[in-house]
């Protein structure tokens, strides 16, 4: 399946892109997306324990099953306010 991954704040700087389209195996989960980028970017691996994942603009748990066309956002600890 093909999904779009978007990165914010420290995650964007870790990956050097604000959005990337990736091809993942069927049955892929949010965790697989984190694996994919953590294995390629050391800085992403460092912040991985602290990031949350949102799919189509809602927070999900890491075992959430993805679907073709999903928008997956990597959300570092927020600092609004």
């Amino acid at each position: 399946m093909k999904i779009t991954v978007i990165f914010f704040a420290g995650a964007r700087e870790a990956v050097g892109e604000s959005d990337v389209t990736v091809e993942l195996h069927e049955n892929a989960t949010a965790n697989d997306v984190l694996d994919f980028f953590s294995s390629r970017f050391g800085a992403m691996k460092q912040i991985r324990p602290y990031v949350r994942v949102a799919v189509n603009q809602s927070y999900v748990l890491n075992d959430y099953a993805l679907h073709d066309g999903d928008e997956v956002a990597i959300i570092p600890p927020v600092s609004g306010g």
Binding site: F8, A9, G10, Y50, A54, Y59, A73, I75, P76, P77, V78, S79, G80, G81
Partner: peptide, 27 residues
């Protein structure tokens, strides 16, 4: 609730560097 969950980030720039702030609630 805003400080805990809403996806907004603040970058602080100092004289010798910059850092993404993290709310205690978010952690």
């Amino acid at each position: 609730t805003l400080k805990k969950d809403v996806p907004i980030w603040k970058k602080e720039r100092f004289e010798n560097g910059e850092v993404w702030a993290e709310n205690a609630e978010a952690k």
